[in-house]
Design a protein around this nucleic acid. Sequence first.
DNA 1: CGAGATTCATGTGAAGTATACCTTTAGGCTTAA
DNA 2: AAGCCTAAAGGTATACTTCACATGAATCTCGTA
Length: 402
Amino acid sequence: MDKVDKIFESFVGESIFKNKSILQSNYYPENILHREEQVGLVASILAPALRGERVSNLFIYGNTGTGKTLGVQFVRNKMLEKVKELGTDNLKFVYLNCKMKSLADTEYRILAELINEMGGKVPATGLPTKEVYSRFVDIIDSKKQVILIVLDEIDQAVQKISGDFIYSLTRLNSELKNAQISLIGISNNLTFMDNIDPRVKSSLAEEELVFPPYNALQLQDLLKTRADKAFKENILEEGVIAKCAAFAAREHGDARRALDLLRVAGELAERESKKKVTLEHIDEANRKIEKDKVISIVENAPRQFQLVLASIMAIDRRGKNPNGIFTGEVYDKYKAVCEKTKNEELTLRRLSDILAELDMLGIIYARVISKGRQGRTREIKPMLSPAIKEQVCEILQKSLGI
DNA sequence: CGAGATTCATGTGAAGTATACCTTTAGGCTTAA
DNA sequence: AAGCCTAAAGGTATACTTCACATGAATCTCGTA
């Protein structure tokens, strides 16, 4: 039996999943475990909107995977249901994720996206920002209504946008004749508010709410309820859930991570046509998730990023850099690579920024250090396990045509 | 020997440039009455 | 005369460059014990 047959065979046979979608990240559960208190608070803060009253601006903190988005969406759905039931038409609930990089990382794009969500239309570029702004106001103010705007991962946006934008949004109500708007900011970053204009701060966070991380026990509970629905009976080996929970608890109680882990582990087991999900599958899943993330970043990175990364990998592969690689070395290698691949070479200034961004992406480690008389530089190390390194190198070679 | 002063190799911020899109606007051409 | 198309004018975003100044610790210098 050849390989392909084998693969199909394992899928034709009994699946270990009952309903895999329950473990996927876009699944919205009926109720949200261990977040009753927070969800209740959100609901009570937003409830006046049902009567057409303006509600306080709300700010929600919490690490990734602590149920912030889920909680807000949950309340949103319930409210929209209620609105339908009441037959009124004066409540809009707009959700915008600021992290979708190409979608909303500038003031202009956020406005454009909000307008789209509201049913208006605006080109991706070209209009004066002012014009977009006034169109936005027109759309909102076209009738009497309460508008709740959810800005998810708002910290990502504010880094690039002046806080003025948020401020003017919060102040918008005085310009509106008919409508009322309220903002709901969601941030992963607990220290986000610290370096923000106090005016913005006080107007944005009329109400504050913290979503604490799940602890390992809560994660187990959560995984167990979902696993019961997602897997068939007796599929999970003893301790699998506990291990998933432990992994995720280490990652700041990230429930999304825990669910991904369990799902991928299940997929791996299925692919091997095993009847059980074992502890090793969890380890394997952990590695795979990490790998997939890195690879998709590298594949989709702009050419110049790939060139820089290729230079770093080339130096790293030659070895003997126990203390890390320095910016100067990378730049020399990078120039050579550019010449070989007939790419235009950038300035050292730009390279420096690219290195910083690669660091942000978590592909390399790059800290600024001072080497005394030898000046200041970044100390650079690739942050990839050997197996991934090879794949990354292959991708780079293919993509750059080396 | 130790406190300052020096120095190196980049880091970093601000401002400017080039390119790619986008709308508005005005003029010219077409078309229908 | 109304309608449609086109090109120029005027904006914005993005990726990059140029310029100028900032950094921070190893090393040097020099006064002093």
